[in-house]
Amino acid sequence: MKKLTAPVSRRLFLAQGSRATLAFGIGSSLIGTAFLHACGSDRSAEGGSSSLSTGYEQTPLAYAFDALEPHIDANTMEIHYSKHAAGYAKNLRDAVAEENVDTNQPLEEILMNVSNYSTKMRNNGGGHYNHELFWKHMRPDAPGSPEGKLAEAIDATFGDFEAFKTQFETAAATRFGSGWAWLVVDKNQQLAVGSTPNQDNPLMNLSDFQGIPLLGIDVWEHAYYLNYQNRRGDYVTAFWNLVDWEQVGSRYESLV
């Protein structure tokens, strides 16, 4: 991940310490404000999408559909990416046109204020954002565990990496019906694990679980059913073989 044009650091959070932090969502917290600033300033500075912000078009996969086998099979990947995720991207663009949204603002800003928009925007903006992060943070030759500052933060927060994995797997397994499990940086700049229903995510001001997403796993049945049937737990366990901890760690270091 390239260095942010406008660094997001503890100094920036402290410099903004006089701003109100008790509001309706993560976007009104110090870390949320700094995160949005980084997303927006990087886009305008370079005339494109930043390393932290998400665009409104579906990004091409960085690997082939069969590259994540045997953990995620090619058929599931192709259907998931080219049908489900593509549908969210298309419907998001429709919602953006219908609601006259300025696409020069990062999608993250819409999500942090999603209560101001339609259900269509909430469902499809969330679905698009969630999947874009999901594809980005998997890779075929993934490292087995995080290193550096993220590893230290995981140990400090959860006790050790195995304890974190257990908590994350529990969040994924106990999410009733369809949804996502997440590792986030919360408004206190601490790591936290939780889950959201449907295509909601922790950026949304309507979410019961809020933070800046570092890592998410899709636990909708379409993400795993062709290979794992009803064995969601096996799918979640296999997911650890695919997590690109270098990407997740770089994202974390950009925030703290």
Rank of each mutant, 00 (worst) to 15 (best):
K2C: 15
K2F: 15
A6N: 14
A6R: 15
R11N: 14
G17S: 13
R19E: 10
A23H: 06
G27K: 01
G32C: 07
A38I: 10
C39I: 15
S49R: 13
S49N: 15
S50M: 05
S51T: 08
L52K: 13
S53T: 04
S53D: 03
T54D: 01
Q58G: 04
Y63G: 03
Y63D: 04
F65R: 12
L68V: 04
D73F: 09
A74S: 09
Y81R: 06
Y81A: 14
S82A: 13
H84A: 07
A85V: 06
A89T: 08
L92M: 01
D94N: 08
A95H: 03
A97M: 12
A97R: 14
A97K: 15
E98H: 04
N100D: 14
N104C: 14
Q105H: 11
Q105P: 03
E108P: 03
E108Y: 03
I110P: 00
I110E: 02
V114H: 01
S118C: 06
K120I: 12
G127I: 00
H128R: 00
H131Y: 07
E132G: 05
E132H: 06
L133S: 03
D141T: 05
G144E: 12
G144C: 12
E147D: 10
A153P: 04
I154G: 10
I154L: 14
T157C: 02
T157K: 11
F158M: 05
G159I: 06
K165S: 15
Q167L: 11
F168V: 02
T170R: 10
A173L: 06
A173D: 10
A181H: 01
W182G: 00
V184S: 00
V184N: 00
V185P: 03
K187L: 13
N188V: 13
L191T: 01
A192S: 09
A192H: 06
G194R: 01
P197F: 13
N198S: 11
S207C: 14
F209I: 06
Q210H: 11
L215I: 15
G216W: 05
D218A: 09
V219W: 01
H222L: 09
H222M: 15
Y228Q: 02
R231E: 08
G233Q: 08
V236F: 06
F239S: 02
W240E: 03
L242N: 03
D244G: 01
W245I: 01
E246L: 07
S250K: 14
R251D: 04
E253H: 05
E253V: 12
